[in-house]
Amino acid sequence: MTPSVLVVGEPHGDGLAPVTAEAVGVAHVLAGADGPVAGLVGGAGSASAIRELGQFGVGRVLRIDDPGVEGASPGALARAVAAAASTVGARLVLLGGTTFGRDLAGRVAVAWNAAAVNGATDLRWDGEALLARRPVLGGRATETRRLLGGRYVVSTRPHAFPVPERPPVSPSVEAAPAGPVPPLLLGPKRLGVKAVPSGSGPALADAAIVVSGGRGVRAPENFRLVEELASALGAAVGASRAVTDAGWRPASLQVGQTGRTVAPQLYIAIGISGAIQHLVGMMSSRVIVAINNDPAASIFRVADYGIAGDLFEIVPALTAEVRRVRGT
């Protein structure tokens, strides 16, 4: 049989989040050569989202037209996703493993009576079961889970799957089934969204490159060395707990056990000693570079490449070299 897959489109600006394209990619693989892949998008800004899904080969799109669902709690949306999954006869619902998708997945699983996993980096069928691999213990290990029962909800970890290369199609569009939403779920109200300013680089959670600074930068004003390198690389800025605890930078930048877990393609740790607290937040990064004046710092044990030296000399040189190579 060809398993049908429903991909939940995550809005991002006027279109879809990059991670939705990655989810569509793995959806095509799991649905088989000509298995049906359907998409679900919200009403607002859906025209460009539908077009994008078409470019990635999604032939059928369900559109949620109930304005009450958007801007309500994730609970309202979860019911809509569950109803759409039943409508297309899906065996698998895929979401991007961002805040949006991860927060929704557990709720959808219960609403649709499915097994679930978040943040998968590898997915394959094992008969009727679905095997999902993902990093656990802060990247110190990987676990493969076997999902059983015939219905599955999975969010995919950003950057884990390639964007599909498929002939574009012009998708059919239909209204998603509108079910009753319990009033309790409509009680919460979104008061506003303050968009992240576009000049400030990518968000930490989905950046392909992260440049983080630690206690070694010594003073808040020196942190600009970290930020300048990040800016030259088009990277997100992170920080160790020492930096955010000292109030040099906001807690939202903290990478680590009590902060954010990141897994970019490239992680550059500057003046970070490598406390386990920090390591568990970045150890799944593909390539790790450490710059530290202490050649015995623990960060060098997990890094792929290291420069032992004075960060106040090395980092500006590195920023200049990146700018030179990139011609900026």
């Binding site: 699983a109 009576n113 499915a114 097994a115 679930a116 996993v117 095997l131 691999r133 656990v136 990247g139 110190r140 290990a141 990987t142 676990e143 493969t144 889970r145 076997r146 999902l147 059983l148 029962g149 015939g150 219905r151 599955y152 790790i288 450490a290 050649p295 060098f300 044990r301 997990v302 890094a303 792929d304 490449y305 290291g306 420069i307 032992a308 030296g309 004075d310 000399e313 090395i314 500006p316 040189a317 590195l318 200049a320 070299e321």
Partner: peptide, 30 residues
């Protein structure tokens, strides 16, 4: 009913430690 169970638990190949970059000047390191 639907459920999930652990099927495999793996440790990444041990990180052998950073390849340290030898240099004479900061520009060379960069």
């Amino acid at each position: 009913g639907p459920t999930s169970e652990p099927a495999r638990f793996e440790l990444p190949p041990p990180r052998t430690g950073a390849k340290m970059i030898e240099y004479r000047t900061p520009a060379e390191a960069a």
